[in-house]
């Protein structure tokens, strides 16, 4: 199951179980997420992809009456440990959501926010960082003349890139994407995919997607989940060409899901 090539595991998931109240949503997940690689999570709706990805930055804390068992190790520390500093964890593990969710503030303020809450007050530094992040997110050319416009006036695709820029500004190490292109048109989708290809040079990326082509285009590793189980995990190339599990094969060929 575990890939044999020598890659550094950035995140190791061990015997992970997760419950919404009494309902179990994840069963005994084991996988490694490798450093500076793109790992795609695929599987039919409701199989637990979002649940899993939201555990990686403890966003599940916001949902009452939930429970996680097992371990998720990031740099030697179990992030499920109730004693870890979640604020620090979330700065290291950024997240981009399915629906673009810029704040109802200006473009500039959207990006500066993450820096300000970190206690950054140096105006010059913030300005530089805003520019740098927008450039990295391939939005600078479109946004540079309207930094003080409301972010809500951007198109959906631009808003999503703004959300990526906002996430980059706080310099995370890992970025989680939960269906980042679900509400975008093909051109915006292509831009985001190219962007992910760029970002993986510096960041470890986990992406949930319903689009098989997208998974095969952008990812190095793919995990196929079904009803809360991790059915198959491996390099994207192998999983897509010679899936080991019959379910995976059926899903990839569009027999269900």
């Amino acid at each position: 199951m575990i890939d044999t090539t020598v890659k550094l595991a950035r995140i190791a998931v061990e015997n992970l179980n997760f419950f919404y109240g009494k309902k179990q949503a994840l069963q005994d997940l084991n996988l490694n997420i490798f450093d500076r690689q793109v790992t795609a999570l695929i599987g039919p709706s409701g199989c637990g992809k979002s649940t899993f990805i939201r555990l990686l930055n403890r966003m599940n804390d916001l949902t009452p009456d939930t429970r996680a068992e097992g371990r998720i190790i990031l740099d030697g520390k179990n992030i499920l440990d109730p004693k870890i500093d979640v604020v620090n964890l979330r700065r290291r593990v950024g997240m981009v959501f399915q629906k673009p969710n810029p704040f109802p503030k200006t473009i500039f303020q959207n990006i500066a926010y993450g820096l300000e809450i970190n206690g950054e007050t140096d105006k010059n530094l913030i300005e530089n960082k805003v520019e740098e992040s927008l450039k990295k997110a391939a939005l600078w050319d479109e946004a540079k003349d309207r930094l003080n416009d409301s972010a809500l006036r951007l198109s959906g695709g631009q808003q999503q890139r703004l959300c990526i820029a906002r996430c980059l500004a706080v310099e995370p190490e890992v970025i989680l994407f939960d269906e980042p292109c679900a509400s975008l048109d093909p051109i915006s989708t292509k831009k985001i995919e190219e962007l992910i290809g760029e970002l993986k040079k510096d960041y470890t990326i986990v992406i949930v997607t319903h689009n098989m082509q997208q998974a095969s285009r952008v990812s190095d590793y793919t995990a196929f989940m079904y009803l809360g189980d991790l059915v198959e995990f491996g390099t994207t190339e192998k999983l897509f060409t010679v899936p080991k599990n019959k379910r995976t094969e059926e899903y990839l060929s569009g027999k269900f899901g």
């Binding site: 930055n57 966003m59 916001l62 604020v87 620090n88 979330r90 700065r91 950024g94 997240m95 959501f97 629906k99 969710n101 810029p102 704040f103 109802p104 503030k105 926010y113 993450g114 300000e116 809450i117 970190n118 959300c163 906002r166 996430c167 706080v170």
Partner: peptide
């Protein structure tokens, strides 16, 4: 105030208080 604003703020590493004062209240 849409939940998504709060989530975005928390995901950036904001504390509860920061989220409340800087995002939720202005929104």
């Amino acid at each position: 105030v849409p939940r998504s604003f709060k989530e975005a703020s928390y995901a950036l590493g904001a504390s509860r208080w920061q989220t409340l004062i800087k995002i939720v209240l202005p929104a």
